[in-house]
Simulated assay, not measured.
Amino acid sequence: MSAAPLVGYSSSGSEDEDEAEAEARAQARPGAGGCRRAQSPLPSQRLPVPDSVLHMFLDTKEEPEDDREKHGGRVRTFPHERGNWATHVYVPYETREEFLGLLDVLLPHAQTYVPRLVQMEAFHLSLSQSVVLRHHWILPFVQALKDRVASFQRHQAPLPEIQPKVA
């Protein structure tokens, strides 16, 4: 049976009853509007937004400034988007005197080809490329990564003796 609402009409003709039933069924369907012909829809005018609200965040920038100097000269490979976190997996590298000596020899030669090269303060071995994580994915990602690497043993191999040759 149909669950059409009960409506009283003054006409008793069968044609008028068919129209009334069709209208009642149309109003009972979701998304059919639900307004009767006698009712007027709500006014479409919006209230004005107060000036205090309009000027509340004028000093905040929509797009963050991408300053290379703040990031050791690195450049983003994808644009910043609010709520996204650029993430990569790496193993930190503790520098030793031998490594720093080699770097002191190699860096000036490399700078003849790429003048903007600079020595970093900290070094690492990247295990992944940069990926984007939403904020709510960070903790599950870190936990899954910890679970995966927990079975690996630490390994510290001695550095081989390196004798840099200057030409």
Rank of each mutant, 00 (worst) to 15 (best):
A144E: 09
V105L: 06
L133P: 00
E19Q: 10
P92D: 11
A167Y: 07
A28H: 05
C35Y: 07
G33S: 03
R134H: 13
P79V: 09
V7A: 05
Q111H: 00
Y90H: 09
E19L: 11
F99P: 02
R116K: 11
G83L: 10
S126K: 02
W85I: 14
G8H: 10
P108R: 04
M56F: 04
G34W: 03
E121I: 05
L106F: 02
T60H: 05
E63H: 03
C35F: 14
Q156F: 10
G34P: 02
D67G: 02
P64K: 02
A22D: 12
D16K: 14
H135G: 15
H135V: 13
P41I: 07
E17V: 06
D66M: 07
S126G: 08
G72V: 02
E81P: 01
Y90L: 11
A32V: 05
E23S: 11
H80S: 15
R36H: 08
V149Q: 04
L106G: 05
G31C: 08
T112N: 11
V53D: 13
K146A: 13
S126C: 03
E98I: 08
K70D: 13
Q129M: 09
K146Y: 07
L145P: 01
Q153K: 03
S44I: 09
I138C: 08
P50N: 01
G73R: 05
E19V: 11
A3P: 02
P64Y: 00
C35H: 06
A20E: 08
P50C: 04
G8L: 12
L159N: 13
R76T: 11
H71E: 10
Y93G: 09
G34T: 12
L42K: 01
K70F: 02
T60S: 12
L139Q: 07
Q39W: 04
L106E: 05
Q119A: 14
V53R: 03
V118D: 12
V142Q: 07
Y93C: 10
R37C: 03
L54V: 11
F152Q: 13
S2K: 08
R116Q: 12
T60A: 09
Q143H: 05
S12I: 11
I138E: 04
Y113N: 15
E17Q: 08
M120C: 07
E17R: 07
L47A: 15
E121N: 10
R96S: 12
V166L: 14
A24V: 08
E69S: 15
E98M: 07
F78D: 15
Q45F: 10
G34M: 12
N84C: 12
E98N: 05
L103W: 01
K61H: 07
M56I: 08
D59S: 10
Q111F: 00
D104I: 06
G101F: 02
L106M: 09
Y9C: 15
G101E: 07
I162E: 04
V149E: 09
T112R: 13
T112M: 08
L139G: 06
Q163S: 15
Y113A: 15
V75S: 14
A24W: 00
L117W: 00
A144T: 07
R68I: 07
R76H: 09
R134T: 13
E161T: 10
S12V: 11
A24R: 04
R154Y: 06
A20N: 04
E63G: 03
P115F: 01
L54C: 13
V91S: 13
R68L: 06
L54T: 04
